[in-house]
Amino acid sequence: MKKFIVIVLLVLVGLFLLLAVSKMPIMGDPDSPTNAIATSRYIAKGPQETGCNNLVSAIILNYRVYDTFGEITVIFVTLTAALAILGREKAGEGVSPLKVSPSPLVSTIMIIYIPFFIVFAFYVAIHGFNSIGGGFQGGVILASVLVIYALVFGYDEAVRKFPPKRRILFEGLAPLCFVVVGFMSILAGTNFLNLNFSSVSHFRNFLTLILEISLGLTSGVAIASLFYILKKVERE
């Protein structure tokens, strides 16, 4: 019965949505309102005003950096929630020694590759200015490195290598950076989180870079921490 009701409801909602969709402007139409209004400035002046050739980065790091602040806070809130509900993992807590030792082939290759991965992560993060990439993308690569490390060398080894004490600062880095930059811009007499407060254009680029890197570090480490915390429960 419940199933029937839900399906009827879904069909109704679906018809309603399809009706709305059919009334929407044709996709890809260059004259549609989305393409006509706000974007002109992003495309025309974006690189000069923000110093980013990558317009997506220009938006998330300059035009709408306040949103990005909120978004990195979301990651941090999730982490806090994880810590509150599950608790921080500890090295050697209830350790059962690894039953299968990592295959030497895999571990050797990983040891060779991991530095490259990390460099690549930073490259993606820093290069978000001018080409495809950005803080989050780099951060996710970083996180995947930490996750792979735990998968290959065992959870305890990973926790020992990257203990919570070392991660804790990185986890809070980005929100703090954003707030500090925000305060700086207020003190400089402009509005909150204005990166263009100094007349020196390099300074703006420097700030963008700092935010980019902090975003990368924080998202990467926080996602890895989430993984470690979830993994901890699994092994208990």
């Binding site: 974007t39 992003y42 997506v56 998330i60 998202s219």
Partner: peptide, 20 residues
């Protein structure tokens, strides 16, 4: 239009948070 892409990028991260 770069704006929806930026929006999706941010929504993705939010999605990671909620899923986690």
């Amino acid at each position: 239009n770069p704006f929806p892409q930026a929006m999706v990028l941010m929504a993705l991260v939010v999605g990671v948070g909620t899923t986690a």
